[in-house]
């Protein structure tokens, strides 16, 4: 993205005023990353496409509620799309199917060397590197549970049951992992600020 191009946040603010060109540009920027996330969460191309459509319609409808002082545009969008994906999983009863061990084993983010997409800009890649580095700093059991919680939309009860872990341990590791991740992403000890 060159210096003259509007930021995602500026585009989203223009979308809130009904600017369809800004929406068009914002879609081109965000859709690949959001679609990649939905494919990994839902494991189904059709479901991912449906949620992508619903999510962008919701983004259009609720753009006026976006507050750039509280979150980046991409972060705000992720919350919308991820919640929609979880709703879809729940509606389809996918939670039961997703507890299969194979599915859980593949729920990883940090260890994989994800190749950047052709459209991915330098800023996005840098952000991804910072998050990946922060994930690597988490203890193994915390990292695994954080990734599982993020990608699978499973409740802590289901995770504990599936992995054969005490519920308290699952909750503690998720809490510690996410709070540590937050600190690292804010530029805490050995972390790069986003």
């Amino acid at each position: 993205m060159s210096k003259d191009e509007p930021t995602d946040e500026e585009l989203l603010q223009r979308v809130a005023r009904g600017d369809s060109r800004a929406f068009d540009t914002l879609y081109d920027r965000l859709a690949p990353r959001l679609y990649g996330l939905l494919r990994q969460m839902l494991h189904d191309e059709k479901d991912a496409e449906d949620v992508l459509q619903d999510g962008f319609v919701q983004l259009w409808d609720h753009a006026s509620s976006y507050d750039s002082s509280r979150a980046k545009a991409f972060t705000w969008a992720v919350m919308i799309f991820r919640n929609k994906a979880i709703d879809r999983m729940r509606a389809l009863g996918r939670r039961t199917r997703l507890v299969e061990a194979a599915s859980l084993e593949h729920a990883t983010l940090g260890d994989k060397d994800v190749l950047p997409g052709a459209d991915e800009d330098v800023q996005s890649r840098e952000r991804a590197d910072i998050v990946r580095a922060a994930l690597r700093q988490l203890p193994e059991d915390q990292r695994k549970l954080v990734e599982l919680a993020f990608l699978k939309g499973l409740t802590h009860h289901v995770i504990a049951e599936t992995l054969g872990m005490p519920l308290g341990t699952v909750k503690t590791n998720i809490r510690r992992g996410l709070m540590r991740l937050r600190d690292l992403l804010k530029g805490g000890k050995d972390g790069g600020a986003l």
């Binding site: 990649g36 979150a71 972060t75 996005s124």
Partner: peptide, 8 residues
Amino acid sequence: AHLAGVVA
């Protein structure tokens, strides 16, 4: 939400 940034 930042975790989404590392998905391909």
